[in-house]
């Protein structure tokens, strides 16, 4: 069957940014090795069964009648169905036990601890011991083990960055832990992998691994309250934000806006994407998002503001894009 073509087909997409076969850390690499080893074993076992069926096919027209002697078949059945599986499974089990510790939660406290809280449908990210809060982007320093503590504000989600580690569910009332320890700077895509409602397909995030000094700069900026609006457009936008309803759902630290329903927007202008990676963060797409979020991300909890005058929406964009 098509199993022969598997490696070739896989190779074509192997380098994509969410591929299990494109590991970037020790644990992800261990799991990838486990996969290829199991695949080789599986191909061999599959080949044995196909071989038996081929023998049956080739011998179907032989001269003598069917053999009713069960002794030969018993040997094969016991050997293939009992003895060989015991050996193979024991080896596999050993391999599994060997890989498991690499993928488990960090044994003790690490230098950096991050809380990630799943929401329908975005990721809230909080840095322990600092006021920094962001959304849908997790910045971590390269070469530093990070203790990620995950939970949820509503339904079950699952935190998954395939290139960095296994997935871990975000369950109400529980805090699950997973270690991210990426040696190389880069942008790694993650996505919710437990069905969480209509927005499930559009609930992704980036883990942005930075050289440690860049990370420190970034974190210092994130810790700070929001920038003052610069220019009349942005000032108009801030006023609109605080009066048309945005402030009820979003927090902008350092202002009166303290809503906790939607993502924290204190530094939204510095983020790469909007709506949990659904669109890139440009003034144009932000304008479209404010106007009609349902068209971009059906089911999103944010109401559309098409009823606002266009000038006011442009002002909002100008204010928000200035929050760097």
């Amino acid at each position: 069957m098509a199993i022969i073509g598997l490696p070739a087909l896989l190779a074509t997409g192997c380098n994509s940014n969410q591929a299990i076969t494109n590991p970037a850390t020790g644990p992800a690499r261990d799991i990838n090795t486990l996969w290829w080893a199991m695949l080789v074993g599986a191909v061999i076992i599959f080949g044995v069964v196909v071989g038996l069926l081929v023998v049956a096919f080739v011998r179907r027209n032989r001269d003598e009648g069917p053999s009713h002697d069960d002794r030969g078949p018993y040997m094969v059945i016991i050997g293939g169905g009992l003895a060989a599986p015991i050996v193979c499974l024991a080896i596999l089990f050993g391999f599994v036990i060997h890989v498991m510790p690499a993928t488990s939660a960090p044994p003790g406290p690490t230098k950096l601890t991050i809380d990630v809280i799943g929401h329908q449908w975005f990721w809230e990210v909080r840095y322990h011991g600092t006021p920094a809060v962001t959304a849908n982007e997790i910045h971590i320093p390269a070469g530093t083990p990070v203790d990620v503590r995950v939970t949820t504000a509503d339904v079950i989600h699952s935190f998954w960055v395939p290139r960095l580690n296994r997935k871990i569910d975000m369950i109400p009332g529980r805090v699950n832990r997973i270690e991210l320890d990426a040696p190389d700077p880069g942008v790694y895509r993650g996505q919710c992998s437990e069905f969480c409602g209509v927005g499930h397909a559009q609930m992704a995030f980036f883990v942005i691994v930075q050289p440690p000094d860049q990370f420190r700069t970034w974190l210092r900026n994130e810790e700070a309250p929001a920038a003052q609006p610069s220019g009349s457009q942005a000032t108009l936008g801030e006023h609109a934000f605080m009066t048309v309803g945005c402030q009820n759902c979003h927090e902008i630290r350092g202002t009166a806006a303290a809503g906790r329903v939607g993502p924290d927007l204190t530094h939204v202008g510095s983020r790469r994407t909007l709506a949990a990676l659904t669109i890139s963060n440009t003034p144009r797409s932000l304008y479209q998002w404010i106007t009609d979020p349902q068209r971009i991300k059906p089911g999103a909890r944010m109401p559309g503001f098409a009823s606002l005058p266009a000038s006011e929406r442009h002002a909002l964009v100008s204010y928000l894009e200035g929050l760097r």
Binding site: V49, L52, L53, V55, A56, F57, R59, R60, N61, R62, G65, P66, S67, D69, G72, P73, V76, I77, I78, G80, G81, L82, A84, P85, I86, L89, L92, F93
Partner: peptide
């Protein structure tokens, strides 16, 4: 993993019946 064993026994029993019989 252990559930592989009864499954494997059946798979080899089906195959061996075909190998030693005369499948049409």
């Amino acid at each position: 993993l252990i559930i592989v064993i009864p499954s494997g026994i059946q798979i080899f029993a089906w195959c061996m019946t075909m190998v030693t019989g005369k499948p049409e």
